[in-house]
Design a binder for these strands. Structure first.
Length: 435
RNA sequence: GCCGCGGUAGUAUAGCCCGGCCAGUAUGCGGGCCUGUCGAGCCCGUGACCCGGGUUCAAAUCCCGGCCGCGGCGCCA
């Protein structure tokens, strides 16, 4: 698309444009100055292109501008597309005019061309420069493909995208700590999950999904936790946990296909190979998991949580990198989780696990009002706080089910990165609030 | 929050065990040479021991406290 500032984008120029005059604008990715011959690698959102300056055959003014260029300065280049087998991609720009729109200070606090590596702390502190790196941009493109695939897949199944309130009056579930805020003089909280609202919306629209932020004020200080994270949530009436598990599984399969097809360049930049996954994924019951762990010498009692050390051990016993653990004890799950009809100690619930990391969590939900109230009470929660939710169970609440998926966590197996902070543009953790 | 490891130029690191020489290297930055680079190359220069206290004739190095980071655990998704 042509704009006031450019007639074309760097990465979109091809050999078929040879001979054309173009105006480009972007960042100075690198300058290689050989004296009489200078190469400026220009980068914009679409990619890179080489600008070749030959002393004597371009105006002296251009030569002196290029000699003073600093990396990451923003420039505009008017020039002619030339074909040359010695140039990257076989094309380069012979400049007619170069204008500096914004001169970058040197040295940079982070090497954008990635010749010198920086550790994650420096990268997050200098995040905007870090996000200009080829590797970071590959991550963002993969994130985009993932989100788009999820959205397309759900829309094609009749789900509608919704937006639930992020400022809420009370905790939606026990456990997680909420961030308190002041709402016109009253106490309110940042939503830890769209859970209750998406259930109410499923009671209105049948199939809904949301991709949005959630907040947890946990002490968690690990490569898998953030104070603010993007959650992919679905909720569907007239489905049970097996139905929504199938949807999750299908989405994962679609994502792998999409990335293979559309992001092979990005995966190459990241030096990552997508995991080989066969479908359907194994489904291991909580009880089976306990047996496996017992056989391996870990004595976990029924009702205990499966922590990271347990999942690490469990994953060594399971062929697939991705698997479901299903039928958790009812009392380890949130109050809205539906118990199994044949054994109320167990619930119609599941986690999607990658190796030892929980990526998603879901269940069939209770749709009977009395059962819901006794479930709330049995967890020691105050029924009064949930009246705004329970009320609607009087007016036609269908059986329903859903899940929530951590986007950044899902990106770890897909990108080969080891921390959710790396796959979050501006991560928020216990210590980091800026940038 | 607990345990372990760490903090040296803008960035990434060596040196620390076994205290003592201009604190080494890469990259960056400044200057010079260079008309096909693509991690360009070569030469010259530049720039650092997290903070506070202690031990010692002498501390980047040993000890204590703090702050910060990374990993593991806990909590949690």
């Amino acid at each position: 698309m042509q704009t006031k500032y450019k007639s074309a984008r760097c990465g979109e120029i091809t050999v078929s444009d040879v001979g054309k005059e173009v105006v480009l604008a972007g960042w100075v990715h690198q300058v290689r100055d050989l004296g009489g011959k200078k190469f400026v690698i220009l980068r914009d959102g679409s990619g890179l292109i080489q600008v070749t300056i030959t002393k004597g055959s371009v105006p002296d003014e251009i030569v002196s501008i290029v000699e003073q260029l600093t990396p990451e300065s923003v420039i505009q280049v008017k020039g002619v597309v030339k074909g040359d087998p010695r140039a990257p991609r076989g094309i380069e720009i012979t400049p007619i005019e170069i204008r500096v729109l914004s001169r970058a200070k040197a040295p940079l606090p982070l090497d954008v061309s990635s010749k010198v590596k920086a550790d994650i702390d420096t990268r997050l502190r200098e995040r905007v420069l870090d996000l200009r790196r080829l590797e970071s941009r590959a991550l963002v493109r993969i994130m985009n493909s993932v989100v788009r695939t999820i959205r397309e897949e759900l829309l094609s199944r009749g789900f509608v995208e919704v937006f639930t309130p992020k400022i809420i009056a009370t905790a939606t579930e026990g456990g997680a700590n909420l961030f308190p805020i002041i709402y016109f003089g009253r106490e309110a909280f940042l939503a830890q999950s769209p859970q209750l609202y998406k259930e109410l919306l499923a009671a209105a629209l049948e199939r809904v999904f949301e991709i949005g932020p959630a907040w947890r004020a946990e002490e968690s200080d690990t490569p898998y936790h953030l104070a603010e994270f993007i959650s992919v949530d679905i909720e569907a009436a007239f489905m049970d946990y097996n139905d929504v598990m199938k949807i999750l599984e299908d989405i994962l399969q679609k994502i792998l296909k999409t990335l293979e097809k559309e992001n092979s360049e990005d995966l190459k930049i990241l030096n990552h190979t997508l995991p080989n996954v066969s479908f359907p994924l194994p489904r291991i019951t909580y009880t089976e998991a306990l047996d496996i762990l017992k056989r391996r010498g870990l004595d976990i009692k029924f009702g205990d949580d499966l922590g990271t050390p347990e999942l690490r051990l469990l994953s060594t016993e399971i062929e697939s990198h991705f698997y479901f653990i299903i039928d958790f004890p009812t009392k380890t799950r949130p109050f809205y989780t539906k118990p199994r009809d044949d054994d109320p100690e167990l619930s119609e619930s599941f986690d999607l696990v990658w190796q030892y990391l929980e990526l998603a969590s879901g269940s069939s939900r209770i749709h009977d009002k009395e059962m819901l109230i006794s479930s709330i009470k049995s967890r020691g929660l105050n029924v009064e706080n949930f009246n705004y939710f329970i009320k609607w169970f009087d007016y036609g609440m269908p059986p329903h089910a859903g899940w929530g998926l951590g986007l950044a966590r899902l990106l770890l197996p897909l990108t080969g990165r080891s921390s959710v902070k790396e796959v979050t543009l501006f991560p928020r953790d216990k210590k980091r609030l800026i940038p």
